[in-house]
Amino acid sequence: MNFLFVADPLEHFKIYKDTTFSMMQEAQRRGHTVSVCEPRHIRWTQGTKVLARVRDIHLTGEADAWFAVTGEREAELSGFGAVLMRKDPPFDSEYFYATHLLEQAEREGARVFNKPRALRDHPEKLAIMEFPDLIGPTLVTRDAQDVRKFHAEHGDIILKPLDGMGGMGIFRVKADGLNLGSIIETLNRDGAQTIMVQKFLPEIAEGDKRVLIIGGKPVPYCLARIPQGSEVRGNLAAGGKGVARPLTDRDIEISHKLGPVLLQRGMLLAGVDVIGDCVTEINVTSPTCFQEIFEQTGCDVPALFITALEKELEFS
């Protein structure tokens, strides 16, 4: 079967940790062929199906020249066995438009994972609000007074933009309220932009856990991303240390509540972020941490994913 990966430029991949690379590697190992394109290579012309300018590639097994291009062509997305949307955030207007093109390709018969509508309708930070029993005290607002009241109630808070990634734009304000006004102005742009405010969870010292849910079921190990030094953020992109751990009973409880819902909505893969007992985000655009968990535990996460993908293709 031929799989098309819609992703960032291959030349920018850090294959020692890249999850999309590990997916490609496992797909090829099983005899599937791999093609790639970027969102900018997808187009839809009046009276035709959605097309993309794609590169057919073969993974070489080498560390440097890790892929070889075996062909370049224009192809209908509906002609692939599966289309995997693996473009990294930010979820900007171009990402949004890409989901519309991919949804049209679905109407033409393409199988897209995660489903374009699910990606579009599932804001990764806001999505947690649907599950109030799984999260800590949280406020979504653009009003500065709302934020100040929340701070007065909870004392130690985290503020972050709704469109951030990799820990970008996250601020902690303690009980003294130092710089709260300036931080609010920076994030909400004088009331023009909605932000999220959450009670600070001291359990972050033990790690911001990435729990992977594949085909509605949890991977048995998570990756705890532990803040280093004086940093409050555990994100790997912000210098956090990744330590693989077995899921706790609470992690399993969370996964069993979220997994079937996410799968039913068309999300074959999700990365649920958990601090202590609380869900903080539900990532569906381009969840990562496959390789880190595999290397530390031997749990073959790429194999679990491709197996789930094959099952979806077989029974749908």
Rank of each mutant, 00 (worst) to 15 (best):
K149N: 10
V219Q: 00
I293T: 04
V34K: 02
M1C: 12
H100E: 08
T194G: 09
N283A: 11
V34N: 05
I42R: 03
D8E: 03
L247V: 02
V140Y: 09
G79P: 04
D121P: 12
C289F: 08
E281D: 05
L59G: 13
R73H: 08
Y16S: 13
V50N: 07
L4Q: 01
V301I: 04
L309N: 06
F67G: 11
G31K: 04
L236C: 03
K49A: 14
A65P: 09
T60D: 06
A82T: 11
H32D: 03
N2F: 06
L212I: 14
A68G: 13
G276A: 05
G234S: 03
C37N: 02
G271N: 06
K17C: 07
V272H: 02
G181V: 09
I170W: 05
P132Y: 09
C289M: 09
E26C: 05
D273Y: 02
L139F: 10
E295W: 07
V54P: 04
R245G: 07
Q145S: 12
P123K: 07
I135L: 13
L10P: 15
S230Q: 08
F80D: 03
V261W: 10
E231N: 15
V34M: 05
D156H: 06
P302C: 14
A175T: 13
R107C: 07
M129V: 10
E206H: 06
H256I: 11
R107Y: 02
G242I: 09
I293K: 01
A127M: 11
G298R: 06
V34L: 10
Q198R: 11
D92V: 03
M267A: 15
A127C: 07
T70K: 14
N2S: 05
I204F: 00
L102F: 10
G47F: 06
S286G: 09
H12Y: 07
I158W: 03
L212C: 14
R142E: 11
I214E: 01
L269C: 04
G215N: 05
K125I: 00
D92G: 04
A27S: 10
E312I: 08
V69K: 15
D163M: 15
P90S: 08
E203D: 08
A110M: 04
E206P: 15
T99K: 01
A308C: 02
V112R: 02
K311D: 09
V54G: 01
F290M: 15
H122N: 09
